[in-house]
């Protein structure tokens, strides 16, 4: 459903993505992991069209996204920290988002209802707490029933009840056959929400397989130690390649 075809991206001298290739298939839920600065965010932003790759192409539903904005109607995006115009009211934000996709007439209001956002729709966004802002972001991401969901640290800042509501919503959507990309530092969340692990290290795909095979390869029973092992391996590989180049 999304094909990332050997993209390159440099920020100044820093090469963030190198010949990066990945495929995301419908009905799967991907955990995108990697240390800070590994290129996760750049990857997501490239898919969203916020970062423009230097080389290579990204296809969404078989069509290149270059110079296109229309494909974004298939995407629901929940940013890590949502910041909205201070003086806008929640209700207005929702109607603005709806205005931007006039062709969609039916809305997925599950999260709006679960978070009771209707009751505070006349509140200005500038007055909301961080958690409420996250609820707004989550509700917006699901509002248009998009085929692809991109969730950047979705559970950060939410209270436990809200987290459970969001998680079950994500699981529902996955079962409904949608493509879901999640980044998170909370490994338990990832284990619960995703069936496919992608580990990015220094701009390259270090691991890309189902969570079962991840456990198998690392011969760990549980998700977290498996990831920990993956991280160790990646660091080791780095030092060996370094050693090799020095030799």
């Amino acid at each position: 459903m999304i094909t990332v075809n050997s993209i390159f991206k440099k920020f100044g001298k820093l090469e963030v993505l190198k010949d990066f290739t990945l495929n995301f298939e419908r009905g799967n839920s991907y955990a995108i992991m990697g240390p800070n600065g590994s290129g996760k965010t750049t990857l997501i932003k490239s898919i969203l069209g916020m970062v423009l790759p230097d080389k290579g192409e990204i296809l969404v539903k078989g069509l290149s996204i270059k110079g296109s904005n229309d494909y974004r109607k298939y995407l629901g995006y929940m940013p890590q920290i949502g910041r909205y115009p201070q003086n806008m009211k929640i209700g207005q934000l929702f109607s603005m988002m709806k205005d931007m996709r006039p062709e969609i007439k039916t809305y997925d209001l599950d999260l709006v209802e679960a978070y009771e956002l209707d009751k505070i729709k006349d509140k200005s966004l500038g007055t909301l707490s961080g958690g409420t802002v996250q609820k707004v972001s989550a509700a917006l991401a699901f509002l248009f029933n998009p085929e692809i969901l991109i969730l950047d640290e979705p559970t950060a800042g939410l209270d436990p009840i809200a987290v459970e509501i969001l998680k079950s919503k994500i699981k529902n959507e996955r079962e409904a056959g949608k493509l879901i990309l999640v980044t998170s530092h909370i490994l338990s969340d990832l284990e619960e929400l995703t069936n496919h692990a992608i580990y990015i290290f220094e701009g390259e795909v270090f691991f890309n397989d189902s969570i079962e095979s991840l456990k198998e390869i690392t011969s760990e029973e549980k998700f977290s130690p498996a990831i920990a092992k993956l991280m160790q391996w990646s660091l080791k590989k780095k030092s060996t390649t370094k050693a090799m180049t020095y030799a």
Binding site: G49, M50, D70, R72, L75, Y77, P79
Partner: peptide, 11 residues
């Protein structure tokens, strides 16, 4: 950030 959110929309 809001501009970024806008950029993720089909506009």
């Amino acid at each position: 950030e809001f501009i970024e959110l806008m950029l993720a929309q089909p506009v």
